[in-house]
Computed example of a mutant assay.
Amino acid sequence: MKPNPVVWFEIHVQDMARARKFYEAVFQCQLETLKSPAGEASGMQMLSFPGDMTTMGASGTLVKMEGVPSGGGGTLVYFACEDCAVEQGRAEKAGGKVFKPKFSIGEYGHCALVTDTEGNMIGLHSMQ
């Protein structure tokens, strides 16, 4: 396996407008419409997080797809933050819930776990 093996992520949602509002508020970014690789007739909706293929890390999308539920499923995506307590606070204000507030992971920095408006848990990571 190559280093940094994750190259893409998808966070499944039930209400795209609500999910967009949550993620744009928490991460202070603008999500962009991404055409479905399955074509318009598939009914699949995608909003892409900002990405830069020339730097380290993975990009991904919010996805609304018939028959695919949102919510906990055993996979957790961590978003890089300057100070994860900031995004943790934004998550609460944007309608999410804090599952585990900012905590130390020793020499590897700090994390927080929050649940979005669709029931998905995401991780927040920062060195401070």
Rank of each mutant, 00 (worst) to 15 (best):
G67C: 11
Q30E: 15
P69W: 03
D83F: 02
G60D: 15
K100V: 14
P50H: 07
L34K: 10
G74F: 08
T54Y: 03
Q88F: 03
H125F: 11
V77H: 01
G57F: 11
L62C: 09
P3K: 05
V26E: 12
A38Q: 13
G51L: 11
G72S: 12
T75N: 03
G71M: 11
L124E: 04
K2Q: 05
C111A: 06
E118A: 02
V98Q: 04
K35M: 15
P101V: 07
G109M: 08
G51C: 11
I105S: 01
G95E: 11
R90V: 06
P101E: 13
C111H: 11
I122C: 01
T55A: 11
T75V: 13
L76C: 03
H12R: 01
A112V: 09
P50Y: 10
S126N: 03
K64P: 04
G95V: 10
M44D: 07
Q128T: 04
F27A: 06
F99A: 11
A80F: 09
A41T: 14
L47C: 10
K100F: 10
G60F: 14
G39M: 14
I105E: 08
E66S: 05
L31A: 08
T117H: 01
S42A: 14
S48Q: 13
E32C: 04
V86T: 13
G123Q: 02
G39D: 15
Q128W: 01
G96P: 01
A94Y: 08
S126I: 09
A19S: 09
V63F: 03
H12V: 02
E92A: 05
Q28A: 13
G72Y: 09
C29I: 15
V68I: 15
D15P: 00
G71A: 06
R20L: 10
V63K: 01
S48G: 13
I122H: 01
T117L: 05
S42T: 10
R20V: 15
H125D: 02
G95A: 08
L113T: 01
N120L: 06
A19E: 05
T75G: 00
L31P: 10
F79D: 08
D52R: 03
M56T: 12
Q28F: 03
C29L: 15
T55D: 04
T33K: 12
S42N: 12
G72A: 10
N4C: 02
D52Q: 06
M121H: 01
D52L: 08
G119F: 09
D15Y: 00
K97H: 09
S126L: 07
G72D: 12
Q45M: 15
G67I: 13
M16A: 04
C111Q: 12
G60C: 13
K21I: 05
M16N: 03
V26P: 07
P50C: 06
C81L: 04
K35F: 14
T55F: 12
